[in-house]
């Protein structure tokens, strides 16, 4: 049985919960990969037009049918369940996560459309954990470097998202959140009615997101009690984007990076004040 006293292990466990949900969701919707589905491989393969790409993809053609992907997703679920029992730093744990990484990489060819930032963050974390925990060769220093990479990517993601919002007139004027919440794709009727009733809340929420995302990387340099404010904000932010916008997989993918942020914050030899 695994213990949560290792930061890399904690990252993996949080991520695994999200990946298990995401894989079960794909299993529920596996008909999208059938010949009649939106992501039928008959059509998706047209994306790769060059001869060398086609020959590379040939072995996967049977796999990208609805039946093939069902098998892949079931195997992925079993691998994830296995990761709850075998530590990352054991050989079995490393083999399980490597197979999980391979399944994510292969399936990404068929899910070019429909994947999102949480899938990319998950992939990024899994590949980092595989590389930085290779039995025999990976040192404890390399495991630390992996955690640094995950924490820096997380901070970069928030900062880029914040700056991109800061340069947007729709975000600065405070209309963006109301507009997004009013769509059936990412919004909700209750949230739309609430924001129509309290227009000041629009501006507050927009600027709250702009400021907190833009300065999020400060959490690496601030004393822990102040850095914690950013992580609590992030938790609330992702929880509400899951509740209101249905972005459940973002919650797990980004929460998985927080132990790495905690680690880097505590490794800093100096803090801002």
């Amino acid at each position: 049985m695994i213990l949560l006293n290792d930061i890399s292990q904690t990252v993996l466990i949080i991520l695994s919960i999200g990946l298990l949900i995401s894989t079960l969701e794909y299993l529920k919707k596996v008909e999208i990969f059938s010949p009649n589905g939106l992501l039928s491989w008959n059509v998706m393969q047209l994306k790769w037009t060059k001869q060398d790409q086609k020959s590379f993809l040939k072995p996967f053609f049977k796999l990208f049918s609805a039946q093939g992907l069902t098998v892949l997703f079931v195997i992925r679920c079993l691998l994830i369940i296995g990761l709850f029992f075998f530590p990352l730093q054991s050989t079995t744990g490393w083999v399980l996560i490597s197979l999980l990484g391979a399944s994510l990489l292969v399936a990404s060819l068929a899910t070019y459309y429909g994947s999102d930032g949480s899938d990319q963050m998950s992939m990024l974390i899994i590949i980092t954990l595989i590389l930085c925990n290779l039995p025999v060769l990976a040192s404890s220093k390399l495991r630390d470097i992996g955690l640094w990479f995950i924490a820096l990517q997380a901070c970069l993601s928030y900062a880029v998202a914040g700056i991109a919002k800061l340069v947007s007139s729709e975000w600065r004027s405070g209309t963006a959140i109301k507009d997004v919440f009013s769509t059936k794709t990412y919004g909700s009727k209750k949230a739309t009615l609430f924001l129509q009733k309290y227009p000041a809340a629009n501006r507050f929420l927009c600027w709250n997101v702009i400021i907190m995302e833009s300065i999020f990387p400060l959490c690496l340099f601030l004393p822990w009690e102040f850095a914690l404010i950013f992580l609590i904000w992030g938790f609330i932010f992702h929880f509400f984007t899951a509740v209101i916008m249905g972005l459940n997989s973002f919650f797990w993918a980004f929460m998985a990076t927080y132990p790495a942020i905690y680690f880097v914050n505590h490794q800093m030899s100096w803090h801002l004040f």
């Binding site: 990319q120 919002k165 340069v167 947007s168 975000w171 963006a176 769509t183």
Partner: peptide, 15 residues
């Protein structure tokens, strides 16, 4: 698709 684009819902939010 390993290089992410982290500009979620910006600069033009999907409305």
């Amino acid at each position: 698709n390993l290089i992410p684009l982290w500009t979620f819902f910006a600069p033009h939010p999907g409305k």
